[in-house]
């Protein structure tokens, strides 16, 4: 569980159609974690749930799809109006 130390500059984006609140400084991954969603993708081989592990752009466990592109959600700044969805793993 995560708690916020401050409340400033709220923004929001959607994940699979659901509205996710975020703040300045948030990446898409940190906003998802703050929202309580840890599992962002399913692993290719065993189809197991996976979520952010390193938060620094190295492990690729936080992959999501934005504008048709697969991106690391921990390296993507949360901005107003982003439409984020789960990745289709056949493309990764």
């Amino acid at each position: 569980m995560l708690k916020r130390t401050s409340n400033n500059n709220p923004v929001s984006f959607t994940f699979e159609g659901e509205t996710i609140p975020a703040q300045s400084g948030d990446s898409v991954a940190s906003a998802m974690l703050a929202h309580g969603t840890q599992a962002l993708r399913v692993s290719t081989r065993r189809k197991a749930q996976r979520g952010p592990y390193c938060m620094m752009g190295a492990c690729y466990e936080c992959l999501v799809e934005i504008d048709g592109k697969t991106v690391q959600s921990c390296m993507t700044t949360a901005t107003d109006g982003l439409q984020v969805s789960r990745v289709n793993h056949e493309d990764v």
Binding site: M1, K3, S6, D26, S30, L33, A34
Partner: peptide, 12 residues
């Protein structure tokens, strides 16, 4: 990183 970038504190 969650603390530094977002002020998010992991509880428990």
């Amino acid at each position: 990183i969650l603390i530094k970038s977002s002020g998010l504190i992991t509880e428990g």
